[in-house]
């Protein structure tokens, strides 16, 4: 029995496949090609050999960007793996009004990174809410330079990322919690285990796979950070451009007279390797953990 004419499936798949080819596969190849040229944002470009890659080695801003990325990842990882899990446990029980709380906790995820970064910029301003309150309480004598000090700016952007990510990972954990057997909790409770012990010995092992997945997601998105740092630093990348991320550097070289798409492509290749490494490491950890 013939289900369909041979070309019917292709007619349906072709649009999506065309998009995949033109906007995913070809750009992946073209990134490598471009990285050997000195293409400009307006067009043109000639082959320059390995010059872009030599330049990478001597780029101080890239060194700072990579250091910032590692700090970003290392600080985000513990907070964003644990806090959303606690939140998920908190909103798991179906109390009256829980849908409202779940939706509200998810709001920072739905808002644009630009919007939340502008809100935080105002809160962390020299004369903003945080400094005002801290001065009022006598914790500090002068305003803390959250947005102009190299390290405080990085820390502010990291806290913003953590705050914005809470709801996102909470929802993923919430879906996973549904699969943790309630009978296990009941049995442990009968045996006299309190909520904390049950959390450590039942909940955490129960969502272990999700935890690994989430830590991969966190690492990759920490290395890809752009909007938070860009907006908080006013697009300048902090004092002396020391608060750039790799993506911010890519964006800087994508525009204007100083723009160099060839070098931006070389930076993109750096970004590719930087994001793929933690993915492979965590995936391997997962496999080894599963065997043990």
């Amino acid at each position: 029995m013939r289900y369909n004419r041979w070309f019917t499936p292709w007619v349906l798949v072709i649009p999506a496949l065309a998009w995949l080819m033109v906007f995913n596969l070809w750009p992946s190849i073209n990134t490598v090609i471009l990285s050997f040229t000195n293409a400009r944002p307006i067009g043109g470009g000639t082959f320059v050999g390995l010059r872009n890659f030599e330049r990478l080695l001597h780029d101080d801003q890239l060194r700072w960007a990579l250091l910032n990325s590692v700090i970003y990842m290392v600080v985000c990882l513990p907070f964003l793996t644990i806090l959303p899990l606690l939140l998920a446990v908190l909103v798991e029980k179906k109390l009256p009004g829980i849908t409202f709380f779940r939706t509200a906790f998810y709001t920072p995820v739905v808002a644009s990174a630009v919007v939340v970064a502008l809100i935080w910029q105002w809160i962390l301003d020299d004369r903003g809410l945080v400094n005002g309150l801290a001065e009022k309480l006598g914790v500090i004598s002068g305003p803390l330079p959250f947005l102009s000090d190299q390290w405080l700016l990085l820390l502010s952007a990291i806290s913003l990322t953590i705050w914005k990510g809470l709801g996102y990972y909470m929802i993923i954990y919430l879906a996973a919690l549904g699969n943790v057997g309630r009978d296990l909790h009941e049995a442990a409770a009968v045996d006299g285990a309190g909520p904390c012990r049950r959390f450590v010995h039942i909940t955490i092992p129960g969502v272990r796979g999700t935890m690994i997945l989430i830590s991969i997601l966190i690492s990759v998105s920490a290395l890809r950070v752009f909007s938070e740092l860009f907006i908080l630093s006013g697009g300048k990348g902090g004092p002396g451009g020391r608060d750039n991320s790799v993506v911010m550097l890519i964006q800087q070289y994508s525009q204007g007279f100083e723009g160099n798409l060839g070098y931006a492509s070389a930076l993109s290749i750096v970004l590719f390797f930087v994001t793929v490494v933690p993915m492979l490491v965590l995936a391997r950890l997962n496999r080894r953990g599963a065997e043990a």
Binding site: A39, I250, F272, M279
Partner: peptide
Amino acid sequence: FLATLVLPGEVTIISQYVT
């Protein structure tokens, strides 16, 4: 389709702009 999920969008954003 599966393979492209591994690739962060920012990596190809420059050549996407060229396209």
